[in-house]
Amino acid sequence: MTKTVPVSVRTSPAQQSAAPVTPTTIRRPRAGLPVLLLVLLGICQLVLVAPLHAAENVFTSTNAIKEEAVRFAGEGKLFLKGPVDPYLTGTVVTAGVFGLTYLFDEKIRDEFAGSHHGVMRGITDAGNAVSNPLLHLGVAAAFYGAGAVTDRTSIMQLGEEMGEALLLADGATFVLKGVIGRGRPYQVDSSTSYRPLQFKDGYDSLPSMHTASSFALAHVVADKTESFYGKAACYAAATLAGFSRVYQNKHWASDVVLGAAIGELAGAAVTRYRNASAGSVTVAPMSIEGAPALALLGRF
């Protein structure tokens, strides 16, 4: 926000006749997301230097790091298999919704075109701010660190699951953005403008990482609550994030549809792996003292 403040200056008569006094413009720095990120980074730094009392965590134990790597590999495998097994029906439905939305991308963009003011602008500003993927990773790190410091395994595990789901969702969308190279709605006139594999700024629209990150986080948190209203609130927040990206012309509507599907798939891969019933087994690659090996993952 720019505020103009008159400043009174004493000058000699000669100076007064030479040049009039003009108002001085003072710009106030914007607070908000950068401040919140700094707070989260401060929490993480406290975690690194504080005495940790939890049984084992990635700050103090190489075994915990190895276990995390093996676990993440297992979750990654479920994530890659998910669109076919067990979510083939969901994949078909998502493809249909994506295709239908793709046809109307430009009409939807035009519907929200023009100046945005008032309550809706404020709501979507908030939706954009809280859907930042870096902010989500900071929240996950803060939960994990708080659980490690206070010896609260449940809190540490929640942060762990958040982080794993976010890494899967953000990693997948990051790769797809560069490979697909779709022009953002503020960059191009046509929703069919692409520059694949060129990794150009403004041509990284599909899919929406903000939306994918929000839905991944929503799935993990919703899985931890038994309340219907709690689950609904998680997904309402994620939906607001996606809507905000379209409303403020950051993404095409179909970008958001695909991003939501990727985020949900990532969250489901993490919770499915964690909630695997006894006796379920999967195989993942790993390394033992530099030698390639396979690990059996699951619960026994």
Results as ranks from 00 to 15, higher is better:
residue 245 R to H: 14
residue 73 A to D: 11
residue 250 K to V: 11
residue 15 Q to P: 00
residue 36 L to E: 09
residue 115 S to Y: 11
residue 215 F to Q: 05
residue 56 E to N: 12
residue 57 N to I: 15
residue 16 Q to T: 12
residue 217 L to Y: 02
residue 158 L to M: 11
residue 17 S to E: 15
residue 238 A to P: 02
residue 158 L to R: 10
residue 94 T to L: 12
residue 252 W to H: 04
residue 57 N to S: 13
residue 180 I to N: 00
residue 183 G to F: 04
residue 44 C to H: 05
residue 226 E to W: 12
residue 98 F to P: 00
residue 124 T to P: 09
residue 120 M to Y: 05
residue 85 D to G: 03
residue 269 A to S: 13
residue 291 A to L: 06
residue 1 M to V: 05
residue 265 L to G: 08
residue 88 L to Y: 03
residue 259 G to F: 07
residue 140 A to I: 03
residue 184 R to E: 08
residue 110 D to F: 13
residue 194 Y to T: 05
residue 72 F to C: 08
residue 100 L to Y: 11
residue 30 R to C: 00
residue 226 E to Q: 10
residue 83 P to F: 09
residue 195 R to Q: 11
residue 185 P to S: 10
residue 114 G to L: 10
residue 293 A to Y: 06
residue 209 M to A: 10
residue 13 P to M: 14
residue 222 A to Q: 07
residue 171 G to R: 01
residue 110 D to L: 14
residue 75 E to T: 07
residue 146 A to W: 01
residue 105 D to H: 06
residue 5 V to S: 03
residue 84 V to K: 05
residue 102 Y to G: 01
residue 259 G to E: 00
residue 134 L to P: 02
residue 190 S to A: 13
residue 293 A to K: 05
residue 278 A to F: 10
residue 288 I to G: 03
residue 287 S to T: 15
residue 65 I to S: 13
residue 142 A to T: 00
residue 5 V to D: 06
residue 47 V to P: 00
residue 179 V to S: 03
residue 99 G to H: 06
residue 165 A to Y: 00
residue 266 A to K: 09
residue 92 V to G: 11
residue 195 R to S: 01
residue 145 G to W: 07
residue 66 K to G: 12
residue 40 L to W: 00
residue 63 N to F: 09
residue 245 R to N: 14
residue 116 H to K: 10
residue 162 M to G: 03
residue 76 G to P: 04
residue 246 V to G: 07
residue 244 S to N: 09
residue 89 T to A: 14
residue 132 N to K: 01
residue 88 L to V: 08
